[in-house]
């Protein structure tokens, strides 16, 4: 998939994933790279930016299995941004879908 296109959507993806439950960085990388190919290292700067913008808070959690993990927890502000992005995306996707269907009719 187009890199530029993916980059814009990445923010939406991490917000949606963390809205469900708190996630650690590696988990987010795994979840996203299962669906499409990304340069995994660039997720971390993105997470840092969103945390700096106040969309995430972070905490360290010692797991019984494996090494300790830095968790990202979505804030109220983050949820607000997530909802905006989701509705923007839905509108966009619906528009594209309609165009595809209209196009294939001809």
């Amino acid at each position: 998939m187009n890199i530029q296109f993916k980059k814009g959507v990445l923010e939406l993806c991490v917000l949606v994933l963390t809205a469900k439950k708190d996630r650690y960085g590696y988990e987010l990388v795994e979840q996203i790279s299962q669906k499409f190919e990304i340069a995994e290292g660039t997720i971390y700067p993105l997470l840092r930016r969103l945390a700096a913008e106040g969309l995430f808070s972070t905490y360290l959690f010692e797991s019984d299995e494996g090494p300790p993990r830095k968790y990202y927890k979505i804030t109220d502000e983050g949820k607000k941004v997530k909802n905006e992005l989701v509705s923007e995306w839905s509108k966009f996707a619906k528009g594209v879908q309609e165009m595809i269907e209209e196009g294939s009719d001809e």
């Binding site: 590696y26 990388v29 995994e40 971390y44 494996g66 090494p67 300790p68």
Partner: peptide, 8 residues
């Protein structure tokens, strides 16, 4: 964070 990534 990257160390954690490698470890995990």
């Amino acid at each position: 964070e990257f160390r954690e990534h490698f470890e995990l």
